[in-house]
Design a binder for these strands. Structure first.
Lengths: 185, 185
DNA sequence: GTCTATAAGAAGATAGAC
DNA sequence: GTCTATCTTCTTATAGAC
């Protein structure tokens, strides 16, 4: 068990980046192997199939989002937590415009695929949807479910529109208005 | 010039349906040929490349949206026009949940592709974004641009979330709240 | 564990008969 | 205009030496 090799990690990092910019199906194992400087044949020592790589990326992205949500949860008031989440897109404005949301793009792509992967589509969105719902519930909103849907829909759509138009200011504008909405609730 | 053959039309209809449910890259020419009952080799009489088919589908979808917008524009007041657009998702609730938005899914996929197709991404979204902006301007809103972004982002995100969760009620809930928002403006 | 070579199959595209 | 057969390339995956 060579603890020294970071090949698996490098493969995942490359895969994550390439899938973000090109999509999963468009990204070939050769792309990932070359980018991570691992010989193509060696990839199969770390991952049984290409689908396996995708499953790992789904997990990685869900964990990243959970880490962000944990940070946001440090605030005392649920409204402040939601506002903290809302601020995040501003810090990755340009990446969001270039590539779209790491959760949303993959979710939309995987819902179109066959087999196990199509189930990952829901998980990617539900992790943040559930958290938002909990915050609205903590605010004693009887319509917490709908408020969460409204918030997450807006954020996902914002990423799609910013990506489509190539205009980062979309992020600022939509976040700003959504903040006002949250504060008025 | 055989006016009798509807092969080109059949190819486009099949391509449109398959791309909607599987995505463009996932859809093969063999898929399209089989579905439209046209021999594979014959496809190339109607379209020079696979990319060409995609360009036609982009045009088709833009034209469909323009037709819908034209219908919505029949109303006298701009607010009523916007409300008419907002009602449309309700009539295609289940399709939207199964496949996502015909504009948004293709836009998100094409922005990840290379070459000419990546430019189509913007067109698919801007057709409806521009129209919405015009309506808000007709309502004398100084922030028409931002209102349009907010509306279209919400609708696009709604389709993505409904598709990811597989829950058609997402459409009803988000449309309902967005209607209230529009009416309060 | 690592890597080269290559098998096996899919997919876009073309040739050329009809 | 139509269609069959096939070429070529790309891609996933495996075999097997080191």
């Amino acid at each position: 068990m060579p603890r020294t090799s970071d090949k698996r990690e490098r493969l995942l990092r490359s895969a994550d980046r390439l899938i973000l910019s090109q999509g999963f199906r468009q990204t070939t194992l050769a792309d990932i192997a070359e980018d991570s400087d691992v010989p193509l044949g060696n990839v199969y020592y770390y991952f049984k199939t290409k689908e396996d790589i995708c499953k790992s990326i789904v997990e990685t992205r869900i964990e990243s989002m959970q880490a962000l949500l944990k940070k946001c949860s440090e605030a005392d008031a649920p409204r402040t937590r939601l506002l903290a989440l809302l601020d995040y897109p501003l810090t990755v404005r340009n990446e969001l415009t270039d590539t779209g949301c790491p959760l949303g793009t993959l979710s939309y792509e995987l819902s179109r695929s066959e087999g196990v992967l199509s189930q990952s589509s829901a998980q990617l969105i539900e992790v943040v949807l559930d958290w938002a719902r909990q915050q609205f519930q903590a605010m004693d909103k009887p319509d917490a479910d709908e408020l969460a849907l409204q918030l997450i829909s807006t954020l996902q759509g914002m990423s799609l529109v910013a990506n489509a138009t190539g205009d980062p200011s979309v992020v600022d504008k939509v976040v700003s208005r959504t903040r006002s909405w949250l504060e008025s609730l």
